[in-house]
Design a protein around this nucleic acid. Structure first.
Lengths: 172, 172
DNA sequence: CTATTGCAGATAAAAAATATCCACGATAAA
DNA sequence: TTTATCGTGGATATTTTTTATCTGCAATAG
C-alpha cells in the first residue's frame, strides 16, 4: 500500500493555486521550483489534474494553471483519484480458482468475500478523503501555520501569478 | 495506490489455515499449489505472517503452518500490515520546505495539514479492515459460496493437513 | 515575429515488486 | 542413525512500476 509522490505534489499545487487572484495563472515551472520538484515530471501530474477537470491550463506566455472550480468544490479524493487512477488498491486476482483442481466457472459466480471486505475498507478511505475539501486545507493553513510560512507562500503566489488579459477583469 | 499481490495470497492462506483440525499444519508448498502461486515467493509472505505472530511455523516433515491464534482474533488489518508494512500509504515529504526560499526550521514545526488529512483517511481505512475478522470471512464463505467450491476447499485442507505428534493430542 | 507556455510521445534511469535458487538447521519417520 | 521433508535466511535475477528527461509541436501574449 503506497501512494506515489505525485499525490503530495498535486495537492500542494492545488492548494497554491487556490490562492491566486481571479482567473490568474501560475506556470507549472514556478510551482516545481517552489517545491523543489522536477519540472518535467510535475507537468505530468498537473496534466492529469487538467484532464480530470480539476485544473485549467492556459497556453502561451502569461499562461499556466488555475483551479477549474472553486476550492470548496475540490476534494482530496478528486485529486488522489486523478493522479493515482480510479482503480481500487486491492485487485482480486481470483486466485482461489487457479489451483490444479479447477471447478467449472459456474462455481465462482459468487463474488469473493475477501474482495468485498477489502473494497468496503477502501470505500471508507475514499469517503474520508471526499470529506476533505481543498478550501479547508487552505484556510486551515492560513490560520494554523507559522506566519512566516504563510507570508512566504502568499508572496510566492503574488510574485508568480499572471493575470489574464481577456475574461471579465478581476476576481469575483 | 496499490496493494501487492501478496496480500491476497496471505489472506487466502490464512482463511485456509482457519479450517485445519486442532494443531495440524499445512505446508506452504501445498498452499502455493492450491492457489497457483510461486512457492518460493509465497513462503516470503507466509514468513512475514509468522514474524507478525499471525501464523506459527513448524519445521521438519509433518511441518508447515497453522494459525497462531483463533480466527476470531485475526483481522484483515493484521494481515495487511504484516505483509505490506506498517507505514502509512501517504508519506509527507515536506516538500513545502524544499523551495529555493527556505525559511528557518522553526517555521515548520506545525504539522502539515495535508498530511493530517491523508492520515485521517487512512485511519478510517484501517479501522474498516480491523472490523473484518478472519472468522467472518471464513464463515461467510462456508454459507454463501458455491457448495462445490466449499467442498473442494475442505477436501484440499483434509488432504494436506498434517496432525502433530506431540502437544496435548487433539484440538481444544 | 518571438519568446513563453502547456502537451504528447519516446526514452531512459531508478526503484520496487516479483520470482528463483541454494545452503542451513530442525525434525518426524524409517 | 539415516533420510527425506520442511521452514529460514541470504543472494540473486527478472519483471514491472515509478520517476525523470528530452524533443518537437500547438497556442498565444507582447
Amino acid at each position: 500500500m503506497k501512494l506515489g509522490e505525485g499525490v503530495e505534489a498535486a495537492i500542494h499545487c492545488a492548494a497554491m493555486l487556490a490562492g491566486v487572484d481571479g482567473d490568474a495563472t501560475i506556470p507549472g515551472a514556478a510551482m516545481a521550483e517552489a517545491f523543489g520538484l522536477s519540472p518535467s515530471y510535475l507537468l505530468k501530474h498537473l496534466n492529469m489534474l487538467s484532464v480530470a477537470r480539476i485544473l485549467e491550463s492556459v497556453p502561451g506566455p502569461a499562461g499556466g494553471y488555475r483551479l477549474a472550480r472553486p476550492a470548496e468544490h475540490i476534494t482530496l479524493l478528486d485529486i488522489v483519484l486523478a493522479v493515482e487512477g480510479r482503480e481500487p488498491a486491492f485487485r482480486c486476482g481470483e486466485i482461489r480458482r487457479n489451483g490444479p483442481a479447477r471447478l467449472d466457472v459456474s462455481a465462482y459466480v459468487k463474488p469473493c468475500g475477501i474482495n468485498a471486505a477489502m473494497l468496503k475498507a477502501e470505500k471508507a478511505y475514499r469517503a474520508a478523503l471526499a470529506e476533505a475539501k481543498l478550501s479547508d486545507i487552505v484556510s486551515e493553513f492560513m490560520t494554523d501555520a507559522d506566519p512566516r510560512s504563510v507570508a512566504a507562500g502568499c508572496a510566492f503566489v503574488a510574485r508568480h501569478q499572471r493575470p489574464q488579459k481577456s475574461s471579465s477583469t478581476k476576481q469575483a
